[in-house]
Amino acid sequence: MKGLWLGAILVSVFVGAALLSLVWVPYDIIQMNMAQRLQGPSWPHPLGTDHYGRDMLSMIMLGARTSIAVALVAVGIGMGLGVPLGLTAAARRGGWIDEIVMRGNDLIFAFPSLLIAILITAIFGASAVNAIIAIGIFNIPVFARLVRGGALSLWTRDYILAARVAGKGRARISIEHILPNLTNLLIVQGTIQFSLGILAEAGLSYVGLGAQPPVPSWGRMLADTQTMYSIALHLALVPGLSILLTVLGLNLMGDGLRDLLDPRVRRAAR
């Protein structure tokens, strides 16, 4: 339980920063000021300034927004497409839909995800939207597989049988009876995919394939100032630790939620 709390605190700090940045940041980051660049932490700039003299705290807050938005929407895509696919596959177990869904899943899993993300951005150009798509695609099979597995075991339960005897269709049963019972599983997996999404976004924007300037993103902050780490170490530590702590928070939350919500799903969720 301590883990859950610690995780929740870490996550709320960064989510809070991201939300706050919608209405307020300490400094305008469009303004560059070369005279102030590469300064270490100080009272006016608690996290220092970057190579254009911009306030790092403001950059981190705005970067949190980018990372969280990208990862969240990517999870949304994964759930939005993966859950129906998984439910359908389970409802028609062994049928051709099931076969296609599962083979498709295997195929997506077999593609090297980072390479495909790079290809996608080579085709459509680099942007936050394309980063979302690239990460989202690889979330689909995760949820499809999870939901199918969970649903299959539910289909054998007595109350589902009862519903079928009562004449309810497979689609209705899936939505009314199966899905609600999978919520916990989805919350737990969603948290984990969310944290993986943050890491993936950081990696993609680190190689220059995420959100484009002037929109800040943590990965690009690290990449842009790489050559200056030996002059100003805070440029490495501030964004790097932000990624680390956010991901750590989400993972701790995921583990905690898993224990809290349903000890029985532990096996399935893994």
Binding site: M32, Y52, Q212, P213, P214
Partner: peptide, 28 residues
């Protein structure tokens, strides 16, 4: 180009020109 572009975009913004940056590799 990358750094100069960021700075120029900021300078253009100051006179009201909004330059949308797209970073791309040489092939593109």
């Amino acid at each position: 180009a990358r750094r100069g572009g960021e700075i120029i975009a900021a300078q253009l913004a100051a006179v009201g020109i909004e330059a949308e940056i797209t970073n791309m590799e040489w092939g593109l």
